[in-house]
Amino acid sequence: MGAAAENGGTRGSGPEAPTEPPAAKPGKLRLTFLDAAAVLAAASLVFLSSLGAVDAAGEPRVVIADAKGQEWIYPLDTDLEVPIEGPLGISTVHIHDGRVAIESSPCPNQTCVAAGSIDRPGQWVACLPNQVFVRVEGGTDDGSDVDTGTW
């Protein structure tokens, strides 16, 4: 990658080499205290946002939210096809073999269909154009019969 003007042969520091910042040598990265602070702030934001993000209690279930803000909840272990009406048309959400996916969508980019199926709490599939949001909740609190699907 990089700009075309970059391939100027050997990279000795010519007369017009950058003089301003703590002139790092090419190839050597010198980070500052504020760089570390920025990364740390970002990391703590990630951590904070993950607190309480997922409701993991109870039975594993599929929660589907639509454009009007309504939510439907279905069990994850019952095969079902759910048509969801959005601004562009009908998106079909398919629950099958303990997994859920957006099977078809009227949206142009089909990102939601390409996302494939999900089955674990906290996972989600979203269709921004048709405003459909599918997520999996619950299923992690009972350690006795975890993940029967994998056995």
Binding site: M1, A5, A17, L29, A53
Partner: peptide, 30 residues
């Protein structure tokens, strides 16, 4: 629910792009 994933993604890609840009800036005559 999408927040943690999105923010973590921003951190990772931002870091990678920043490292590239810093190296590019240090070695590009242009």
């Amino acid at each position: 629910i999408i927040a943690p994933v999105f923010l973590a993604m921003g951190l990772a890609t931002g870091l990678a792009l920043g490292i590239f840009a810093e190296r590019f800036a240090a070695s590009s005559r242009w």
